[in-house]
Design a protein around this nucleic acid. Structure first.
Lengths: 149, 149
DNA sequence: CAGTATCCAGCTAGATACTG
DNA sequence: CAGTATCTAGCTGGATACTG
């Protein structure tokens, strides 16, 4: 009890976790959420799912069915979708609701925690779409210079 | 010139790129920036590099040397560090400056574009550190329920 | 519909050795 | 110091087949 050092105290109050430390849980969490499927699933669940242009800004977040997510995230395999959804559910970012219809209906929805992460990820998504041209130009310039020597 | 369709027009003005389309360049860009090393490098270059607690909030962004980055990002291999730095340079997110000292000194610095992405990523980093406890609790609950059945 | 299970190609990333 | 080059173990993730 009395063995707590000043450094430990400060760590507790200021920055209990540090992503730059390889062994820190928060580093692993950051690795986890820096994942393409996590990013896309959260972006999808945070928007209204209609996938109209600008939908991520206009619509209310709406629960999405497994099949809707599968269609929305073009290119995702069943395995990765299920696997990522489970992991997000385990972390408390989304909830899974199964309704006993025939056939069974399953919907996924953001929790408050998931919504808070969605706000961050939406920025990332927006950034990618907004600055795409600039990045493309930079690549062209870089490649030209490299080959020109 | 006159062959532009209405749909193309709208795409130009509203949402030229769409991360939900597998073939869209912006999807690939989002995949690219949703990468653990990209996240950590940009977080490091955007902070003052001293890696004190709260440094990412207080300090001015400062250029970092290769060796500083290597030390700061605990666990990164030379290969991944170099590879990721090249890719970020190619995309115009960072600049590489070599000074002809003996031995040579190389520093990396955020461009304006890189800084704009850093703002997004800083949110992600903060989120991971802030909500770590909550996620850990959620996992424990999930695992308990799963085994209890 | 909403998964689970299995197999396997390919990329990621670590280790190691070498260089201007 | 700041890389490059090579080899390879292993994990990621895609394809496919099957199920309540």
């Amino acid at each position: 009890m009395a063995t707590t050092t000043a450094a430990q105290q400060r760590a507790q109050t200021r920055a209990e976790y540090d992503v730059f430390l390889a062994e820190c849980p928060s580093r692993k969490l950051l690795d986890r959420i820096s994942d393409k499927w996590v990013t896309l699933i959260l972006a999808a669940l945070g928007s209204d799912g209609s996938h109209r242009f600008g939908a991520d800004c206009a619509g209310e977040p709406r629960p999405l069915r497994y099949s809707e997510l599968s269609r929305l995230l073009a290119g995702v395999s069943q395995k990765m979708l299920t696997q990522t959804l489970r992991s997000l559910e385990r972390d408390g970012l989304i909830t899974r609701t199964a309704t006993a219809t025939v056939p069974v209906t399953v919907t996924y929805e953001l929790t408050d925690l998931g919504l808070s992460l969605h706000h961050m990820i939406r920025g990332l998504k927006g950034w990618a779409e907004t600055h795409m041209d600039e990045v493309l130009d930079n690549r062209a310039t870089y490649d030209t210079r490299a080959s020109a020597g």
